[in-house]
């Protein structure tokens, strides 16, 4: 099948900081593509370029065959976007938000009514359609945004961190809608996330770090290629940590308190004997997952998930405080 998104050697920077450093990728029509990386890796910048909000400094981006710099309005017709933070008008009702979207996409009254009913049913918000969005919970808002992005029947759906700040049950529900869409409507889905468990079902996972793509492939292929079984030991005692690092050349520090090493290079049993025994607080095996793929490739953990949640909460608090 043809590629519906094509990114060639894209560069972007904010002031002096490089956000994207020569990124290239292709997305096949009808596939599910996940962009995985820690906060600040350049995911949102790439997303903004793909949905024409920002022009790349260098390189070429084609979305549904249209150059996003030369023909942004044509590219926009084919895309639906769900942003990381809410872009709903929370003084309007759910239905008014959808109707607005239909109008700015130039849909005729009949088609607007038809599509409003369709997407409301899809996300199960029919009973709430005439309520003001301000009264909605985070999960309901997110569902409404997904519904809105689908109003004009886009060929590609861009979702930037669609589940940040939501509880596990809502996250599950949102992924169910997305899977349903993909199978029923053959829509191409591009998501960014730093929740590793959410990309396991994607067709292609692209790992991005510090503005560069460091690996790309199906989750299985990535795990087979880069995934290793790791041993992680949390050592509070600095001396002991040094001693372990000195003894096992393949071991490396992780964060301030832990050490990781490929499972075959270290004897977990040994760590539990003298002199380390009392200095370990925890020792565990990490099976080959995409998380350990990230660890293998960067030597760092995708550990900023808690940061992401905290940021989302703070943003929520700021919004709440203003009104």
């Amino acid at each position: 099948m043809a590629n519906i998104v094509s990114v060639e050697n894209v560069r972007a920077s904010y002031g002096g900081t490089v956000a994207l450093d020569g990124v290239s990728l292709e997305i096949e029509e009808g596939s599910s593509f996940a962009l995985l990386g820690p906060n600040g890796a350049g995911k949102t910048t790439l997303m903004n370029i793909l949905c024409t909000l920002r022009a790349p400094q260098d390189g070429r981006v084609l979305v549904a065959g249209h150059d996003v710099v030369r023909a942004p309005r044509l590219a926009r017709r084919s895309i639906g976007v769900v942003f990381q933070t809410s872009s709903l008008d929370d003084r309007l009702t759910a239905r008014e938000n959808l109707n607005f979207h239909g109008l700015v996409h130039g849909l005729a009254p009949k088609r607007r009514r038809f599509h409003i009913e369709r997407v409301l049913e899809l996300v199960g918000l029919q009973d709430w359609q005439d309520e003001i969005v301000r009264t909605f919970s985070g999960g309901m808002r997110r569902r409404l945004e997904i519904a809105r992005a689908l109003m004009h029947e886009p060929r590609i759906l861009f979702l930037d961190e669609p589940t940040v700040g939501l509880d596990a049950q809502t996250r599950q529900q949102i992924w169910e809608y997305l899977d349903q869409l993909r199978t029923e409507r053959k829509i191409t889905i591009l998501t960014t996330t730093h929740y590793i468990e959410e990309v396991e079902d994607a067709d292609v996972v692209c790992i991005i770090d510090r503005g560069k793509i460091i690996a790309q492939g199906s989750p299985e292929a990535l795990k087979a290629e880069h995934g290793r079984r790791w041993v992680q030991a949390d050592v509070t005692h600095a001396e002991a940590r040094k001693a372990i690092l000195a003894q096992f050349p393949e071991a490396r520090p992780l964060g301030a308190r832990s050490i990781v090493a490929p499972a075959e290079s270290i004897e977990a049993d040994y760590l539990q004997t003298e002199p380390f025994k009392d200095k370990l607080t925890e020792i565990r095996y990490r099976e080959p997952t995409l998380e350990s793929v990230f660890l293998s490739l960067t030597g760092r953990d995708l550990r900023d998930r808690t940061d992401g949640e905290r940021e989302a909460q703070m943003a929520e608090g700021r919004r709440g405080g203003r009104r």
């Binding site: 949905c51 024409t52 909000l53 044509l74 926009r76 017709r77 942003f83 872009s87 700015v104 809105r148």
Partner: peptide, 8 residues
């Protein structure tokens, strides 16, 4: 504003 800016 972004919602409007990504419309055609």
């Amino acid at each position: 504003l972004r919602e409007v800016l990504v419309s055609p």
